[in-house]
Computed example of a mutant assay.
Amino acid sequence: MRKTITVIAVLIVLVLIGVGIVQYVNTSDSSDFIGQPGEPTGTETTEPPVQPDWCPAVEVIAAPGTWESAANDDPINPTANPLSFMLSITQPLQERYSADDVKVWTLPYTAQFRNINSQNEMSYDDSRNEGTAKMNEELINTHNECPATEFIIVGFSQGAVIAGDVAAQIGSEQGVIPADSVRGVALIADGRREPGVGQFPGTFVDGIGAEVTLQPLNLLVQPIVPGATMRGGRAGGFGVLNDRVQDICAPNDAICDAPVNVGNALDRALAMVSANGVHALYATNPDVFPGTTTNAWVVDWATNLIDNG
């Protein structure tokens, strides 16, 4: 009798051991497919980013031109230059929309251009690099805090170069925010302008940006514009943002409508420095957008993007 009970007990123990082994094997095999603890399994769902209630739906970033800004200016209510062309775009938008819905932020940067007539100013390269870094910083900060906020970027002259460079980085997926976060970009008098890159509302001009036409003669123009590297066009253009970038240039503006073949590099560099005449008249020039002005057109364009996404 005792022998029988012993045999039965041994059999029960063996069965329990066998069940344990099978469970262990099954668990080990399944781990090859579902991953270790804490690893994604392929069946998890990604939650959309949380947008705080205080975040604006849209942020308009405006980059003023040379001598129209300052590094310590107030980005919400800029006063460095009351005659800044960009104010004729930003102020109407601020009046139209609540700051809770649309944030209008003006790039505060040195905005200078050392040249033969102003040797004590910051060089164009340093001013442009400062502006680019500050614009990227604002994009990063807003996107991190408000991931669903979308951007409209506008720039004039040196500010257009900065805005265009940032847009090119974003469009090539090398920027600080995703391209899907950008609703539109407007570049007014872009010194790196190339026909066929971006969209061309208003009057189309055949010329190119001053930085493009002077790139082969960069060393020759340095005595006139020391520290201003003529970088040419933007390699790869605006990438996936190409259809969202508006390239605006007034006919005969030496900054964006320069001749392809430079007859006299020094004269062309001096024209870039002076940047007056046509370049200073975008708020009144009827030849850019027949029937209206550039600033009025940009306000309407931005309003449509804000209202209709």
Results as ranks from 00 to 15, higher is better:
90 T>E: 11
165 D>R: 08
67 W>Y: 14
127 S>G: 08
56 P>A: 10
131 G>P: 00
109 Y>L: 04
135 M>H: 00
129 N>K: 07
79 T>I: 09
171 G>Q: 03
161 V>P: 00
168 A>L: 15
88 S>K: 09
144 N>V: 10
95 E>M: 06
94 Q>A: 10
85 F>R: 04
86 M>K: 06
50 V>D: 11
77 N>C: 07
136 N>W: 03
81 N>A: 13
178 P>A: 08
128 R>V: 08
101 D>C: 13
138 E>L: 05
82 P>Y: 12
86 M>P: 02
57 A>P: 04
172 S>Y: 10
116 I>C: 06
68 E>K: 00
64 P>R: 02
114 R>D: 07
112 Q>K: 05
155 G>L: 04
152 I>N: 01
80 A>F: 04
172 S>C: 13
129 N>W: 14
77 N>F: 11
76 I>S: 12
47 E>Y: 14
158 Q>V: 05
153 I>C: 00
169 Q>R: 11
53 D>K: 15
61 I>M: 15
153 I>L: 12
74 D>L: 06
64 P>Q: 04
81 N>P: 00
165 D>W: 02
93 L>M: 09
135 M>S: 01
101 D>K: 14
148 A>T: 11
94 Q>W: 10
134 K>Y: 08
48 P>H: 13
92 P>N: 07
100 D>F: 15
63 A>F: 07
118 S>I: 12
59 E>A: 14
126 D>K: 04
72 N>L: 11
84 S>V: 02
91 Q>L: 09
47 E>A: 15
133 A>G: 02
161 V>D: 06
155 G>W: 02
102 V>A: 12
74 D>C: 05
66 T>E: 08
181 S>T: 05
70 A>F: 06
106 T>I: 07
54 W>Y: 15
129 N>M: 09
59 E>S: 14
71 A>T: 04
66 T>Q: 04
126 D>H: 05
119 Q>W: 11
165 D>I: 12
164 G>H: 00
68 E>I: 01
116 I>G: 07
152 I>Q: 00
